[in-house]
């Protein structure tokens, strides 16, 4: 029970092999996009999958991470790792404030409050001068890692992004499998009972919320460095929807589901965009409905159920 199950070790090894081998076969920029969104979905899954909170406002943390990192790299001349870190810090602070407001409610009210707060952030970003309005922040320098390693080549940057993703992924794995994570599980399973045992459940939810927001900020910041761009798309509500969709497709509450979901959705968007154009959104909507109606466990969730082993 306390050791990492074999099924997860194998899945992790497979994921590592894919991460290492794929840039030799596929476009690094595409892969980096997948990894950024995979981290975003993993961060989102901490809340929905392990606390049972549906945040519909994660675009706020992703977007602020993106803007702040872009600004720090471009205007303040921060090295990329420090730029991403600043994005994460701001996202965490925003998460602390919004989480504090939202966790007092549950279910659909929680989702609505997170959405409303995130839309406020969006409107601020539309108006605030530092975001560059409709243009966004463009031509963000990728810079030198630790001021030393030049990241202008996609191939070099890829390894940094892969390292960021793996660090975030392993960090969240640890959070879920920590004494804290054990309490989160208890709260999700029976909140009233956890309270009756003396747990201050709001504190636990808030910490989880802040961790999730910080990781979403890392994902957004990394994305800004990769594409050298931060725009309103990063902070608008469809971005929150992406996290929901990817996690749902991959498997809510599974460890490997969100990255798989991100891979599937990004691939689909890339491949189908050329064929279907704007109809991609409709196809995505269809997948969403199909998942909710017939396929609730998601890809990894289904495999997990078939194997009877955790993934």
């Amino acid at each position: 029970m306390n050791a990492v199950p074999l099924s997860q070790r194998i899945a992790f090894a497979a994921m590592l092999v894919l991460i290492v081998a794929s840039p030799f076969v596929l476009y690094p920029v595409f892969l980096m996009k997948v990894l950024c969104f995979a981290l975003f979905a993993v961060a989102f899954n901490l809340l929905i999958g392990f606390v049972g909170l549906l945040s519909f406002g994660h675009a706020a943390y992703f977007g602020m991470g993106s803007y702040v990192s872009a600004h720090a790299a471009k205007v303040w001349g921060f090295t990329p790792e420090l730029a991403i870190l600043s994005g994460a810090v701001v996202a965490a602070l925003l998460g602390a404030a919004f989480g504090w407001l939202a966790i007092r409610r549950s279910g659909i009210y929680f989702a609505m409050i997170t959405l409303a707060l995130a839309q406020m952030v969006y409107f601020v970003c539309v108006q605030a001068p530092f975001t560059g309005g409709e243009d966004g922040i463009q031509a963000v320098p990728r810079g030198h890692l630790f001021g030393v390693v030049d990241l202008s080549s996609d191939f070099a940057l890829y390894w940094v992004v892969a390292a960021v993703f793996l660090a975030g992924f392993l960090f969240l794995y640890r959070v879920v499998h920590s004494p804290f994570g054990q309490v989160l599980k208890a709260i999700r399973e029976n909140e009233a009972r956890a309270v009756s045992l003396g747990y201050r459940v709001d504190d636990y939810k808030l910490i989880a919320f802040v961790l999730s927001a910080a990781l979403a900020g890392v994902a957004g910041g990394t994305k800004a460095i990769v594409f050298q761009l931060a725009t309103l798309t990063d902070v608008n509500w469809p971005m929150s929807g992406e996290a929901v969709l990817m996690t749902l497709v991959g498997g809510i509450g599974t460890i490997f589901g969100p990255p798989v979901g991100a891979l599937v959705i990004i691939t689909m968007q890339n491949e189908l965009a050329t064929i279907l154009g704007a109809w991609v959104t409709v196809v995505q909507g269809g997948i969403f409905v199909a998942c909710v109606l017939a396929f609730r466990r998601g890809i990894v969730g289904e495999i997990q159920a078939k194997l009877g082993k955790p993934l």
Binding site: R174, V175, S178, P179, G181, D203
Partner: peptide, 10 residues
């Protein structure tokens, strides 16, 4: 140790 999110559940 209930808040320790950085330690292993071990």
């Amino acid at each position: 140790s209930s808040y320790d999110f950085w330690r292993s559940e071990r």
